[in-house]
Design a binder for these strands. Structure first.
Lengths: 200, 200
DNA sequence: ACAATTATGGACCTACCGTTCCAGAAAGAT
DNA sequence: ATCTTTCTGGAACGGTAGGTCCATAATTGT
């Protein structure tokens, strides 16, 4: 039936993710998007509804991609190693040098909190999903349920703080040192509890 | 000499701080500012140059006010108690209920990183000043210089992460629990090193 | 009281925002 | 080949952004 769509939708969304991730919602104009995605206004509105709709889609794409990093590590490594590799991959990447865009979810929470609570909440939900993954890893690593919850909340705080520093273009060694400090604390805490439990 | 200024400059800046703090730079329009500050366009441009100039001034005001909280605590309490009270005051305030604006410095780093590097750097510098205060407190508390540096960097990461959660309207008990976890780690670490040093 | 100086209110400017709309081009179905 | 459907490019829309300008009002020094 009739003329088919000419552009690759997924590829266009990827371009949009990159732009929104880097510049945020407000500072990314429709003209910027159309230029990067390589499509006309009509095609844009036909395919995505409006700017906000595209942003929601980008948020979801980003979140899935982000969760997959941890999920894959979890399938292949011991739980604590998987957690560490998630942080090391995010904060220790040496491949592309100046990619200090932070985390699109954190950026959105901060930028949109007082502007569009729906977007803020959506980004927050995605972050909560990651925190739940943290909790699952910690449980697998032998932490008691309440200890896993406590440590997962702590690690999410660390994660969010590290992303703020990322936008300040903190050096990779400094960043990794801070992450390492935090993990040392958490692992020490879990080890102590396990030891205490063994002594009962 | 001629007609004097009619409005209270400091008071006007306070109003502007409140607006920028809540909504960020981009989402705060000149009309919003003029309305809140209660002055006309001419007076505004006469007194502050332009929107960006006012924002810089607000950033400074916010930073000074913020640093003063820690500085005052430091004058009155033991160093670790001063540090704790800084966090507890920021994240445990029960006075005004729904004031979840985060930290204007953190908000600015995130919002402006890719838009206006000057503003991002300025906010980052102010944060660094707070981190230096952390370091000084930890030094006073008996931490070795490198340990104080390490722990201060860690606490700044915690601070930034907690402010992100604040914008998500995290509950005060959850927030304080996370802060408490972090402080437990840091104090344990310093105590251990002090013990180890005593055993030499 | 008058002159000199400066703040003030508000009209005005240009640029850009996100969105809508429409005429025309392109492709599948018959 | 024709018809129908859908996509596409670009013009046009109203609204708002930050910033400028000027006539007027107000105050101090003389």
């Amino acid at each position: 039936m009739s003329r088919p769509v000419e552009f690759d939708r997924d590829q266009a969304v990827q371009k949009a993710v990159h732009l929104f991730w880097q510049r945020g919602y407000q500072a990314t104009s429709l003209a910027d998007l159309l230029d990067a995605m390589g499509l006309s206004r009509s095609s844009f509105y036909g395919a995505f509804g409006d700017k906000r709709g595209l942003f929601v889609e980008c948020l979801d794409v980003f979140a899935v991609r982000n969760q997959a990093i941890l999920q894959r590590a979890r399938d292949r490594k011991p739980p604590m190693a998987a957690l560490r590799s998630y942080f090391e991959r995010n904060f220790g990447r040496t491949s592309v040098p100046d990619l200090h865009f932070g985390c699109m979810l954190v950026n959105t929470v901060i930028e949109m909190a007082a502007i569009d609570q729906g977007l803020c909440d959506l980004a927050g939900q995605h972050l909560k999903t990651v925190q739940d993954l943290f909790e699952a890893c910690l449980g697998d690593a032998g932490a008691e349920p309440d200890e896993a919850k406590r440590a997962a909340a702590f690690l999410m705080m660390v994660n969010e703080g590290a992303w703020v520093a990322d936008r300040q273009r903190i050096s990779i060694p400094d960043q990794l040192a801070r992450i390492n400090t935090a993990f040392g604390y958490v692992e020490g805490s879990i080890a102590n509890r396990n030891t205490a439990k063994a002594q009962l």
